[in-house]
Amino acid sequence: MGSFSIWHWLIVLVIVMLVFGTKKLRNIGQDLGGAVKGFKDGMKASEEPKEQIPQGTTSADKTVDVAAKDVHK
């Protein structure tokens, strides 16, 4: 009971293609590829550096107090 030979894998592949059909297998492959691409894009986005606040300033310098504005004239 060693590893399977190439003939075993070909027979399994033929049986899987008969059961599921080539169109469904192609759709599964496209869905899997799209999921992997989305995961990679998500990982790239999380690795991008965040906006750096220059030294000597605080995040309070960039905030806007919306309650102080008079919108009812």
Rank of each mutant, 00 (worst) to 15 (best):
Q55T: 10
D61F: 04
D65Q: 03
S46C: 06
D31W: 13
A67R: 07
G42R: 10
L13K: 13
D65N: 15
G56P: 06
I11T: 04
K50W: 01
I53R: 11
L25R: 04
K69H: 13
I15W: 12
V19H: 03
E48W: 01
K37R: 15
G38F: 06
G33R: 15
V64Q: 02
I11S: 10
K62Y: 15
K23N: 04
A67W: 01
L18Q: 09
I6S: 14
A45Q: 14
V64M: 07
M17G: 05
P49K: 00
I6N: 12
P49L: 00
G38R: 13
Q55M: 06
H8F: 09
K73R: 08
L13R: 13
S3T: 03
M1K: 07
V71G: 10
T63F: 08
R26T: 08
F20E: 10
K40S: 07
A45F: 04
W7K: 11
F39M: 13
I15G: 10
P54C: 02
V16S: 10
S3Y: 01
K37T: 14
M43W: 01
D65K: 11
D31S: 14
E48D: 11
G42L: 05
P54F: 05
L18F: 11
V19T: 03
N27S: 12
L32R: 08
K69S: 10
I28T: 13
G56L: 01
A45P: 00
Q30L: 14
